[in-house]
């Protein structure tokens, strides 16, 4: 298997953290992983992004020209990246912030009010986790159990008290289905 994921949004929405956690989970499952954050001028204009690859084989280029999954947290990111999603791939968008609709009929679309839900749950910064939950249930890219392990490894100890809440957010996204 090879999963090629682009996560994109404004700086501060946890785009890079999401990519890092995802790659970390892949590593825990002994897969090859790469996570390439944008560091250049493409971040200007609201498309801070990272390219994550989780694969059974050695990873070639860490730069993604096309993706199997796209997570978008704002309109400019949808506009920029919707065309790179492969046929049969999926787009997961934070409908609290993205009001445009992708112009694609050959992909699966999941629209989740992640930011609003995270806010209601008491921590707006968990929006990225909710979206990752959907990615995990829709693709099986990594195991849900490993997500928790990854959080304990990645987060500094003083933030470990947040992990049960983060797992709730993950669970919400994991089980989310549009009415």
């Amino acid at each position: 298997m090879i999963e090629k994921v682009i996560i994109s949004g404004f700086g501060g929405q946890g785009v890079l953290s999401a990519g890092r956690i995802l790659a970390y989970c892949g590593m825990l499952e002994n897969r090859s992983v790469s996570c390439l954050p944008s560091y250049g001028p493409e971040m200007r204009g609201g498309t801070a992004n990272c390219h994550v690859i989780v694969s059974d084989k050695a990873i070639g280029s860490p730069v993604l020209n096309n993706a199997t999954s796209l997570i978008v947290m704002n309109n400019p990111s949808l506009e920029k990246f919707e065309k790179v999603v492969e046929t049969g791939g999926l787009i997961i968008m934070d409908s609290s912030l993205v009001n445009n609709i992708p112009n694609r009929d050959d992909i699966s679309l999941y629209s989740i009010p992640a930011t609003k839900t995270a806010f209601d749950m008491g921590n707006i910064t968990f929006a990225n986790i909710i979206l990752l939950g959907k990615l995990i249930s829709a693709t099986g890219i990594v195991l849900k159990e490993n997500f928790e392990k990854a959080l304990y490894k990645i987060l500094p100890e003083k933030k470990h008290n947040l992990i049960p809440q983060e797992m709730e957010a993950l669970e919400y996204g994991f089980n989310y289905s549009a009415e």
Binding site: V33, C35, L36, P37, P62, V63
Partner: peptide, 10 residues
Amino acid sequence: EGILGQMMET
């Protein structure tokens, strides 16, 4: 290259 410095891998 810049990406080698910036990317994360195992």
